[in-house]
Amino acid sequence: MASKPVWEQIGAGFVQHYYQQFDSDRTKLADLYTDASCLTWEGVGFQGHKAIMEKITTLLSPLLQSLPFQSIQHSITAQDHQPTPDSCVMSMVMGQLKADTDQVMGFQQTFLLKNVDNKWICTNDMFRLALHNFGA
């Protein structure tokens, strides 16, 4: 069996690390973002390390908007990775998450990773729950 391309290895390694840290201690994600990083969370944008970490560490439960969730568990069902022309790696993740006692929900997340000083950082991060309003 041929080994995976380097961008697949980088992307898969990042995804595994990201969700392990997110599920156990979100504050440990701080090293993955810089002041130039951007996050779009459910259509709302955040730019810079401080704003992103404030959002990530104070996320609200999707079903109980006034209560921060205490625990979360992600299950990755699919991930795809591509190299970009400027030597970055784009990763798209699909999966399910469970926050506290909320129902299991699908989600999609896309990361753009860049090597800065021999360390892969997230320059762009886009997250959406896979919720649909079919009654509209």
Rank of each mutant, 00 (worst) to 15 (best):
M1E: 14
M1C: 10
M1Y: 15
A2P: 08
S3W: 15
K4Y: 07
V6I: 11
V6F: 11
W7A: 03
E8S: 01
I10F: 00
I10C: 00
G11F: 01
G11Y: 00
A12G: 15
G13Q: 03
F14I: 09
Q16A: 11
H17D: 06
Y18R: 02
Y18I: 02
Y19N: 05
Q20N: 06
Q21F: 10
Q21H: 10
F22K: 04
F22T: 05
D25Y: 14
R26A: 03
T27N: 05
T27Y: 04
T27G: 12
K28G: 02
L29Y: 03
L29N: 05
L29H: 06
L32C: 15
L32N: 11
Y33P: 09
D35C: 07
L39H: 04
T40P: 08
E42N: 09
V44S: 11
V44C: 06
G45P: 08
G48M: 14
G48R: 04
M53W: 09
M53P: 07
M53G: 09
M53C: 13
E54N: 10
K55V: 03
K55F: 01
T57Y: 07
T58W: 05
T58E: 13
T58I: 13
L60S: 13
L60W: 08
S61K: 02
S61P: 06
P62Y: 01
L63N: 09
L64V: 11
P68C: 08
F69M: 00
S71Q: 11
I72N: 13
I76E: 01
A78T: 12
A78G: 10
A78K: 07
D80Y: 12
P83N: 07
T84V: 06
P85S: 06
D86H: 10
C88V: 14
V89T: 00
V89A: 06
M90G: 04
M90W: 07
M90C: 12
M92I: 12
V93A: 00
V93Q: 00
V93M: 01
M94R: 13
G95F: 00
Q96R: 07
L97Q: 13
K98N: 02
D100V: 00
D100S: 00
T101M: 08
T101Y: 04
D102V: 05
D102Y: 08
Q103L: 13
V104K: 00
V104P: 04
G106Q: 03
Q108K: 13
Q108L: 10
Q109T: 04
Q109Y: 01
F111G: 01
L113A: 01
L113H: 01
K114Q: 11
K114I: 09
N115P: 15
N115Y: 09
N115S: 15
N115M: 11
V116H: 09
K119R: 14
K119N: 12
K119C: 14
W120C: 04
W120G: 02
W120M: 02
C122S: 05
T123Q: 07
T123I: 09
M126V: 13
M126T: 10
F127H: 01
F127D: 03
A130D: 11
A130V: 08
L131Q: 12
N133S: 10
N133Y: 15
N133Q: 12
N133R: 15
F134S: 15
A136D: 15
